[in-house]
């Protein structure tokens, strides 16, 4: 369970994020939508203790993230390509993450084998370093790397951007499978309302740093969101 308490982030007097209270239940599939500058990435960065909150805090499974580091073993994330190590091959990167998460080579290989279809033959054994892969293929590597070591919380920022249509379908299936597992909480942010509606049981819309909508997904959700964002 993730609990947000009186959280705010201010830069030079401008408040970019302000969430008084938000609770994300264990096993929930949580979708975050909003325009540029709505505060999606800021929220994820706070959740990962990459920036300091101005006020308040986030508690991830009983661990307050800006005071203890024990949330790290069960939390996996991919925000952008700065989560990739450019001079490694994809295999080396997966094994490196595996090492850090206590998975041996065989464990990692087994996981990679189940996602062979997602890689579409463009990732493994391709004699390329991560820095030389296309944006889409880099994203594939980053997303699958978050699945290593059975994390309980998975955070993906804009996972659908830059992916080709087929891969978007496959990614949706991966996220849905994760969402079906009651042990795993998935947090996904996106600009794409339809994708988010398809993979999330709960959708929060943000605007200028504040939560403006919080809805359980239903057949009408997409309409409601479209109406809200069509200005």
């Amino acid at each position: 369970m993730i609990q947000v308490n009186n959280l705010s982030k201010t830069y030079n007097g401008t408040t970019v994020l302000k969430i008084d209270s938000l609770e994300i239940k264990k096993g929930e599939s949580f979708g975050l939508v909003g325009n540029n500058g709505a505060g999606k990435t800021t929220f994820f960065s706070l959740l990962l203790d990459l920036i300091q909150p101005s006020t308040g805090n986030i508690v991830n499974h009983g661990v307050q993230v800006n005071t203890s580091e024990s949330w790290k073993p069960f939390t996996a994330s991919f925000l952008d390509e700065s989560f990739l190590i450019g001079y490694l091959t994809p295999e080396e990167y997966f094994y490196f993450i595996g090492d850090l998460r206590g998975q041996n080579k065989a464990d990692v290989d087994a996981l990679l084998a189940t996602h062979e279809e997602f890689f579409n033959g463009e990732i493994l054994k391709n004699k390329k370093y991560l820095r030389d892969l296309s944006k889409g293929n880099q994203k594939k590597v980053g997303i699958i790397a978050t699945l290593i070591g059975n994390p309980e919380v998975i955070i993906l920022d804009e996972p659908f951007a830059n992916l080709d249509p087929t891969t978007q379908f496959r990614l949706k299936k991966i996220i849905k499978d994760l969402a079906d597992n009651p042990e795993i909480t998935v947090l996904v942010s996106s600009h794409d309302l339809q994708h988010t509606v398809e993979v999330s049981d709960r959708i929060v819309a943000m605007h200028k740093g504040e939560v403006v909508k919080d809805i359980q997904t239903s057949p009408e959700t997409l309409k409601e969101l479209e109406l809200f964002f069509a200005v």
Partner: peptide
């Protein structure tokens, strides 16, 4: 530096 964010979110 290029992947410092990764290092900071991993169990390191």
């Amino acid at each position: 530096s290029a992947y410092y964010q990764l290092m900071m979110t991993q169990n390191i």
